[in-house]
Nucleic acid binder design. Structure first.
Lengths: 288, 288
DNA sequence: ACACGTTACGGCAACCGTAAGGATT
DNA sequence: AATCCTTACGGTTGCCGTAACGTGT
C-alpha cells in the first residue's frame, strides 16, 4: 500500500531540488526524506531519482510518476477539505419545505452568519426520513415520525389544520364548520402518509369510516387545485393556504368543537453533538 | 496526514456493510478495522459511521466523504499501475529520428515482442540530450556527446558522410570529389551543433577557416532543398539522401582522400540496469 | 443468549531522530 | 575541504494480532 507521506516527500524533493531543502520544507530530518523515497521506490519497484552527483535527478520512471503523485496528493487534500465545506442538507416533506421552510432558513442563515451553503431536499415524509437515515441529509423535517434506532426525533411546532372549500361550495359563506358537517362532504386526500389520516382518525374516531374520500392526490398543491375546482373539501395546514385565503381563491374554515393540530417533527442522528449546526437549526426552528 | 490504508478500510466497510465482513474482505482482524476507522475519524475530525445497532450506518459526513475516498483510492492504484505501463521514449536528433530510426524501431519491437508503446521525440541533439538528462526520455540518440555525470554514452554506429550538389552544379557529373575542391564552393550548414562542424574541422584542419559558409539552416531537410536550388553544396549523412540519390534530385559525391564518418551516440542514465529495455534497445541498434 | 463492535493488552515492526560514513566537486 | 546524501543505530511510537468486555436484538 502506497503511503501519502511518502508521496509528499517525493513531491517536496522534486520541488525543493535537494533532499536537504525538502527536509526543511517538511520540517523533518534529511535522512528521513532518504528513507521515504527509498521506501516509495521499493514499493513501486523502480528508481525514481538518481543521486549520482550534481543534485538529485528524476529518472524516467520518476518523471512518469510525478504527475500522478501530484494529483494524488491534491485529491487527498481535497478529500480532507471537502468534508469541512460540505453543504448543510435539510430533507423536508413538501408541505414543510414549500410553505414553512423558506423564512426559517433565511432567519437561521442570518442568525448564524452561515458560510456553508444549504440545500433542501423536498419529497414525501417517507423520503425525508430515509434521507436522514441514510446520511444523505443532516436533518429531516416531517409531519410524523416513528421510532428509529439511533435517531432523535422531536416535535418543533404545532401547525393548525383548517378545512378548505371552493368559493362555490355551500360552506363558502361560513367561517367555521362543525366537525360532523365534514363527514357529509366529499373529501380530497393529499399525499399518502402525511399524517393527516392519523389526525382525522383521532378527530373522528369511530365515524372515520363514514368519511367519503373521493380523490387521493399526490401533493398539497394538487389538493388545493382540486378543491378550487369544487371537487370536494379537504383539510390542510393553515400555513399552506395563507396565499389563497387572502386572495379569496379558497375559503378557509376553522373546524369547530376541536382545535386540531398536527405536530411537525425534526429527526436527526442521535450521535450528532449538541453544539452542531443540525442541533442549532432544530433549536432555531422550534422557537421561531 | 491521511493514510490510504485507512481509506481502504473505510471503503471496505461501506461496501461490506459490516466491520466483520470488511475485515474478511481485507484479510485482517476485525478490531483492526475499528481502529482504522477511528483513526480516520480522528484525522478528519468528524464521525463517519454510526454504530448504534442494526449494522453500521454512514453519517452525513461519511456520505460526503465517500465519493472522495473512492476516487482517492482509485487514483492511488492508477498511480501505481501507471508507472508499469509507461511508454518507452526515445529522444533523437532529427537526422537520426527521421532517416535511421523507423526501421530500427520496427525490428526492435518485433524482436522483443514489445507490449509497451514507444514514442520518439525528435529535436536537436541538444534537446535529445536534455531529454535523457531530465528523465523525459529513456535514451537519447545523438550525433555527438559529451561527458555527463551519471550517464553512459556509447557509439552505436558510424555513418558515412557524403557531399551533395544539385543536378545543375559543375560537380554534378562526378561521383567523387576531392577534399580540396570542397573548399572552393559555397557551403550550406545544417542544424548548429550536429557535430558536422567537428567532422569538418578534423577533415580540413587549418584550412577550415577558408570554408565559405553561405547559409546556416535549421534542418537537414532545409539543407537538401537549398542544395537542390543550387545555393551551394553540403555534407550530410549518406542515409539521409538515399531517396534523392536514387531519384536523381540530388547528386551524391563520395569525398576522396578520406573516408569521413560521423559516429552516432546513445546516451542513457548509468543507473539503468543491464537487463533493462533501454540497454536492450541500444544493443539492438548497435548490431543492426 | 447471540451477534457484533469496542476496549485492553502485548509483541513486534516501522518511524524518525542523531551521528557517523561515502561520494562528488 | 566542503557539501550532500546514505548508512547505522537506538528510542519511541504505532500497528495489528488475540482475548476480554459492552451493547443492542
Amino acid at each position: 500500500m502506497l503511503s501519502l507521506s511518502q508521496i509528499e516527500s517525493f513531491i517536496a524533493l522534486v520541488d525543493a531540488g535537494s533532499f536537504q531543502r525538502a527536509a526543511e520544507q517538511l520540517g523533518c530530518s534529511q535522512p528521513h526524506i532518504s528513507q521515504q523515497i527509498k521506501k516509495l521506490e521499493a514499493q513501486l519497484g523502480v528508481h525514481l531519482v538518481s543521486r549520482t552527483g550534481g543534485g538529485p535527478r528524476l529518472t524516467r520512471d520518476g518523471h512518469a510518476f510525478l504527475p500522478n503523485a501530484r494529483s494524488l496528493l491534491l485529491s487527498a487534500s481535497r478529500a480532507e477539505q471537502g468534508i469541512r465545506e460540505r453543504d448543510f442538507v435539510i430533507a423536508a416533506s413538501s408541505n414543510i419545505g414549500v410553505y414553512l421552510l423558506p423564512p426559517l432558513i433565511a432567519s437561521f442563515a442570518e442568525a448564524h452568519r452561515l458560510r456553508q451553503r444549504m440545500q433542501i431536499r423536498i419529497g414525501t415524509n417517507r423520503e425525508a426520513l430515509d434521507r436522514a437515515r441514510s446520511g444523505e441529509a443532516d436533518v429531516a423535517l416531517t409531519e410524523w415520525s416513528e421510532e428509529l434506532h439511533g435517531f432523535d426525533w422531536m416535535p418543533w411546532r404545532r401547525e393548525k389544520l383548517v378545512a378548505i372549500v371552493s368559493q362555490r361550495h355551500p360552506f363558502a359563506a361560513q367561517t367555521r364548520v362543525k366537525k360532523a358537517a365534514l363527514l357529509t362532504q366529499h373529501f380530497i386526500g393529499g399525499e399518502p402518509g402525511t399524517g393527516t389520516g392519523r389526525v382525522l382518525r383521532t378527530l373522528f374516531g369511530e365515524s372515520m369510516s363514514s368519511l367519503k374520500i373521493g380523490l387521493e392526490l399526490g401533493s398539497t398543491a394538487a389538493v388545493k387545485e382540486a378543491v378550487k375546482a369544487n371537487l370536494g373539501i379537504s383539510i390542510v395546514l393553515e400555513s399552506s393556504v395563507r396565499e389563497e385565503r387572502s386572495s379569496g381563491s379558497l375559503k378557509v374554515l376553522e373546524i369547530e368543537e376541536a382545535d386540531i393540530y398536527k405536530s411537525l417533527y425534526a429527526v436527526l442522528p442521535r450521535e450528532v453533538p449538541a453544539n452542531s449546526l443540525s442541533r442549532a437549526f432544530v433549536a432555531h426552528i422550534a422557537q421561531a
